[in-house]
Amino acid sequence: MIIQNPVSDPLSDVLALAGLRAACSVRLQAGGEWALRFRPIELKFNVVRRGECWLRIENMPARHLREGDCFVVSRTPFILASAAHIEAINASEVFAQSGASATYGSGNEVELLGGSVALVSQGAAELLDLLPPAIVIQAQAGGASSFAWLLDELDREWQSAQAGAYAMCNDLLRLIFVHALRHHISTADIADLAWLGGLREPAISAVMRAIHGAPEKPWRLAEMAEIACMSRSGFAALFKSRVGQAPVEYATRWRMRVAASRLENSADSVSTVAASLGYLSDAAFGVAFRRVHGKSPGQYRRSTEDRITPTRPDLPSNN
């Protein structure tokens, strides 16, 4: 048997450092005239399983959602309602009485399924900063059926109490998030994608894969331009326009993201981490790390030691 290492994938690399954890899974049935306000802590995934409703977010046009439509909301209060201008009450009040499955209004014409995510890595916030307040995937769009199926599986696992169910929930949420990100990368205006925009440009994507595959390498502009098969000036300009950072800056920041993950998730000394990333001295490593993260490697490690990650947060906090 020949086992080949997979080609480095920048998006997968970033997701691996993000630390997504399942927070809750909820179901809502509603009917008549109704409106509920949700306040997601980090990320909330949803699918309209039956009927139709409106998604309202401040400073954004209301979106009419139909059966099969999916949406992701990032850190932003939102309202689900039977019409665009009904006064909403807090969803936490409804779910506090009903638990993971709630009924509201008169009837059950509408059914929604949702899953919430907590983030457990300090670097995860950088990933959320790339997302718009809401991503809507219409039922007829590619990937919507997979997104809905994954949410159904998440709901079943969350309620099952079977061995390994929580690990399954975490894996399902990562898959759901990848589907949402892929949709965003393929449909958004490239100016709104930040470094994700580089994944839509073959020459830039090839360089990003190389950087992620060898974070310990002190990448130089000429080497990266050669991988892209471009002149140095043309490559530098294209990379900056697509990614929002100069090529060498991007390589350095990724190197420091990897360093932060190793400090956070291993018992290796600062010197060992520095050496593993190609630094010949702790001092040089410390200067580069502080420039990116705003604190020394030792301070960063100590700041992560005090963080406590709950296994299953209280349900109402995610509604």
Results as ranks from 00 to 15, higher is better:
9 D>G: 01
23 A>R: 06
29 Q>G: 04
29 Q>P: 00
34 W>Q: 01
35 A>N: 01
61 P>V: 12
68 G>T: 07
73 V>F: 02
76 T>W: 01
82 S>V: 00
83 A>T: 07
87 E>K: 01
88 A>W: 00
89 I>E: 09
90 N>I: 00
93 E>L: 11
98 S>R: 04
98 S>D: 02
105 G>R: 08
106 S>I: 14
110 V>R: 03
121 S>N: 10
125 A>K: 14
138 Q>G: 01
140 Q>I: 00
149 W>Y: 05
153 E>Q: 14
153 E>C: 13
157 E>M: 08
158 W>V: 13
160 S>R: 07
165 A>S: 15
172 L>W: 02
174 R>D: 13
177 F>V: 09
181 L>N: 13
197 G>S: 03
208 M>H: 09
209 R>S: 12
231 S>V: 09
239 F>A: 12
243 V>Q: 11
250 Y>D: 02
252 T>F: 00
253 R>D: 03
257 R>N: 02
258 V>W: 01
262 R>W: 09
267 A>L: 11
272 T>D: 11
275 A>C: 06
276 S>M: 10
276 S>V: 09
281 S>F: 10
283 A>T: 15
293 H>E: 08
296 S>D: 13
296 S>R: 13
305 E>N: 07
311 T>Q: 13
312 R>A: 14
316 P>I: 13
319 N>V: 11
